[in-house]
Design a binder for these strands. Structure first.
Lengths: 158, 158
DNA sequence: CACAATTAAATTGTACGCAAGTGAATTTTG
DNA sequence: CAAAATTCACTTGCGTACAATTTAATTGTG
């Protein structure tokens, strides 16, 4: 509510357009990223969301499903079947926690661990495809981070 | 290719972390946008991709399926069932073009047309939720545009 | 200790997103 | 003009996303 009289509170047409353009730009760029990654990830038999799960595991080691979900902002309805596929591919193990049997601990198999090196090279290619300087990438990433934080807190009164 | 020796060209471990990844920032922000829009769109019975189709039609009038796909970067495998749902909701019509019977022309029904005003007001809330200045929004939009262009042209040697 | 409330994961149902394939209409070529 | 190539939309199959429900385990409370 940062505006003036709130009377008819006309938001300039321009702002509406921009906001729509921005949300579409984010939407379309996300798809473009997925498509750019696809030929590379196809070679190792991963989808893009599966790759994100692997990133989390490479970085943080074994984790319960819930924590993976918090990292990626995904719920168990998405993760459960996805993790089952990664398990069938032989890249991860899923073991029920003995201390708390509600939890399932996800960890890398040797093959899953080994894939890290393979992929490492691959990530470089995408960075170059993006065709941005490191500084631009960092700037954009930080802006998106803030934007996402704001949207998350929006509530919006459903 | 703006780097030093390209020899082993080690990417620092730091840059590989999830939070440092631009691709993840885009991916997660896209989901955040969809979630922010959801409570609003629920009231009028639209999904976010359906809203994007309506935006195109409000802006450009009746269009063949192919053109809608070009605008939104979606193929007919996605659009065909989506458009069928919009038709069942009574918001659009689909009529096979008499001049070229391969094409299906999509147009708004009176109800679909009327929804434009309804939504327009409501959408203002999202712009404010984003919590960015106009300048930041424009900057981000332009950066994402360029990024998307680069990724699209990547090819990547599938 | 029993019993309600909470939590974690999985399941169900709906809707994208996209690759691959089908079928009908149009355009290109020989 | 007929055969081949192309185009457009639709369909099929797989893998996300996510709301809502279910099941099992743990925690909180009396």
């Amino acid at each position: 509510m940062r505006a003036q009289t709130t009377k008819t509170m006309e938001i300039p047409q321009e702002e509406k357009r921009l906001e729509k353009q921005l949300c579409f730009a984010v939407y379309a760029t996300a798809h473009a990223f997925t498509r750019a990654y696809k030929p590379i990830l196809d070679r190792v038999g991963l989808t893009y969301p599966q790759y994100l799960v692997m990133l989390v595991l490479w970085e943080r080691g074994e984790l319960p499903v819930k924590t993976i979900g918090e990292q990626l902002d995904l719920d168990s309805g998405t993760l459960s079947p996805l993790l089952k596929r990664l398990e069938q591919s032989g890249l991860i193990k899923r073991i029920r926690d003995l201390r708390d049997e509600r939890q399932v601990i996800v960890s890398l198999t040797p093959r899953g661990e080994a894939m890290k090196g393979e992929i490492d090279t691959i990530m470089t290619a995408i960075g170059q495809a993006a065709g941005c300087t490191l500084q631009e990438m960092a700037e954009m990433r930080d802006m998106l981070h803030r934007l996402r934080g704001n949207l998350g807190r929006a509530g919006m009164g459903g």
